[in-house]
Design a binder for these strands. Structure first.
Lengths: 167, 167
DNA sequence: TTTTTATTTCAATATTTTTTGAAAGTTTAA
DNA sequence: TTAAACTTTCAAAAAATATTGAAATAAAAA
């Protein structure tokens, strides 16, 4: 496998993986491209390399910046904007975990809490609803703690310790 | 909030959360419904409660069974098939983690490994590709270990210990 | 066997999501 | 100013995905 094959394979894998996790293909591919690019890229560069339209590129770059994993850069003397990705994968994971927690997990936890606190009326269906949503609430809360705290902690203690602990 | 409101809220939340994680709405809603139902439900029951077609119900029930989180049950003397969900949320999480690992994470890890093993040619772009895919490979491998081993281990040691460790 | 009850399949349809591209907007340079 | 370089917006089009429903299949009862 040569460089170009490897690069394309990586970008397309990352792209289809993205859709599987609720991030669209273009967004995931732009991110992949920036992640492995040693130099910042302009919108033109990205459009050309991924064969996507200007509008698409603009919108998805914006979203990546909203996620806090892609940044604008200006080259002196140049009007054009350039973009780079967060290059430290540990920090990348931390940022993604933080955002997914904020956008999905925390709202869900809130709803599970509301639902599990309805009034007990003695019927089995109410009992079951309360029981299951309480259990999900506890699990989601634990997951939230893990996601926002474990990931991105210094690699050399929690993660490594944990993995040793379990192997 | 009364029972019906709470139930609907739970089902629709679970449904829209599903799409965000690569599981379609109907599938997630069927699962939610079964999860809080004290009794097994027939296809008719599900169709009626969620207002979805027979074909849709059949296909998504099949997928849920493929995921190993919904089971067929037969009531004696009855021809109809009934369905239940895995009720233990810990076991549910373990099963989902296992399947996602098998379907997504492991194939990705394999590709990251292939890509990160291309021949070093001294150029900065090749260096960067190798460096980043190696880092992602390591992270994905760690995540895979965590997902398949930590989750679903007896609640009262790993998870609790971990959470205490980090708080 | 034939009929009845229930489930599955899949082409057609509907819905949702993504992408495009051109017009409008913005910013710097002339 | 006006022009040039570049970016954003958004309605329309395209693509991807989910859903329907009726015909085919299966399995049990009459």
């Amino acid at each position: 496998m040569n460089y170009d094959e490897a690069k394309n394979k990586f970008i397309s894998t990352w792209g289809s993986l993205g859709t599987l996790w609720g991030i669209n293909k273009a967004m995931a591919q732009i991110h992949a491209l920036l992640l492995i690019s040693p130099e910042p890229l302009s919108m033109e560069d990205i459009m050309e390399q991924l064969q996507i339209s200007r509008g698409n590129t603009s919108m998805n770059l914006r979203q990546l910046m909203d996620w806090g994993i892609v940044f604008k850069e200006n080259k002196m003397g140049e009007r054009k904007e350039y973009f780079t990705s967060e290059k430290d994968v540990q920090e990348l994971a931390r940022q993604i975990a933080k955002e997914r927690s904020r956008r999905e997990l925390q709202p869900t936890i809130k709803i599970l809490n509301d639902v599990s606190n309805i009034e007990e009326d003695g019927t089995s269906k109410t009992k079951e609803l309360i029981k299951q949503t309480k259990a999900l609430h506890e699990m989601a809360s634990n997951l939230d703690i893990m996601m926002t705290k474990v990931v991105g902690q210094d690699q050399n203690w929690v993660t490594k310790a944990l993995i040793k602990l379990i192997k």
